[in-house]
């Protein structure tokens, strides 16, 4: 510490703790609300200490869900999980082989392919909503897992990241592999994949969160309640209106929707930070 001043140190900690508390406050209120029965939440002001209905509310949400929505939250979480894993694995798989082709081969249309992938960076779902919906509808992929996952797995960022990684791999490795008689696929499998292991893991953390938090796309293409992701479920529960909204269930569902990605970030912080910094390069 340069030029240490004790009172300043204390002040610093006070400011940081205040910051942490302000950031955490909405979650705390949500958690408290998820542990009361509805009647308690309809009083003003609502309670600010946890109640005794925690277990009941979460079990009710997971197995029955809210009255306004026909699917239990357990099923929705499973759908979210399938979508998040599908997107994460899908993106990694198709990006890593595309990057391998671009870095380790010379062929016609190489730069064309590169630019074509680059364009996907510029076209998030939000800006081409309707025509993309139409393509998926024409392909008969509405209300399917394929429709939820496949349109989202093209990824320029992941391809670029793997390209960067491969470019830093020493040429001698490829040379040695070639002299030893290993073909390109063998080299990819036995050398490149093990080398990129931590990058893959870091990317996986980022993409899992990205996939779990997808909202607009599932909102458009799922009308079948058994395919709702948990985020769509929350929206449908809220849509019941203030009079019928079962806030204790909605709040429990909200907590459940946050839990997996937050756990991933906190428990794999090092990989998460690495992934975040690398995909933004």
């Amino acid at each position: 510490m340069v030029g240490a001043r004790p009172w300043l140190n204390i002040l610093t900690h006070v400011i940081l703790i205040l910051g942490v508390l302000i950031v955490a406050f909405p979650i705390y209120v949500t958690f408290v609300a998820s542990s009361h029965e509805l009647e308690a939440l309809l009083q003003t002001p609502i309670p600010l200490v946890p109640g005794g209905e925690l277990l009941n509310n979460y079990t009710a949400a997971l197995t029955k869900g809210a009255k306004a929505v026909g699917a239990p939250v357990g099923v929705m979480m499973l759908n979210s999980l399938v979508m998040a894993l599908g997107i994460a694995f899908g993106k990694i798989a198709i990006s890593i082989i595309a990057a391998f082709a671009i870095v380790y081969f010379r062929f016609r249309f190489r730069m064309t392919a590169f630019w074509m992938i680059f364009i996907t960076l510029m076209l998030p779902v939000e800006v081409r909503i309707l025509p993309t919906y139409k393509v998926v509808a024409d392909l008969g992929m509405l209300d399917t897992y394929g429709g939820l996952i496949i349109p989202l797995i093209a990824s320029a960022t992941a391809t670029f990241m793997f390209r960067q990684v491969f470019l830093t791999v020493p040429d001698e490795l490829a040379e040695a592999a070639r002299i030893d008689g290993a073909g390109p696929l063998r080299f990819f499998w036995d050398v490149l994949l093990p080398i990129s292991r931590t990058n893959i893991a870091a990317l996986f953390v980022i993409l899992f969160i990205y996939g779990w938090n997808q909202y607009l796309w599932p909102l458009l293409i799922t009308t079948d309640e058994s395919l709702y992701t948990i985020l769509i479920g929350i929206n449908r529960m809220l849509a019941a209106g203030d009079d019928q909204a079962e806030w204790q269930i909605i709040m429990a569902t909200t907590m459940l929707a946050m839990l997996p990605p937050v756990l991933v970030v906190v428990s794999m912080q090092r990989l998460f930070v690495k992934g975040l910094v690398e995909t933004e390069k």
Partner: peptide, 14 residues
């Protein structure tokens, strides 16, 4: 190797 990425880009983006 490029086919999956390009196919998805063409169908769902371009």
């Amino acid at each position: 190797l490029l086919a999956p990425q390009i196919a998805i880009t063409l169908i769902f983006f371009i």
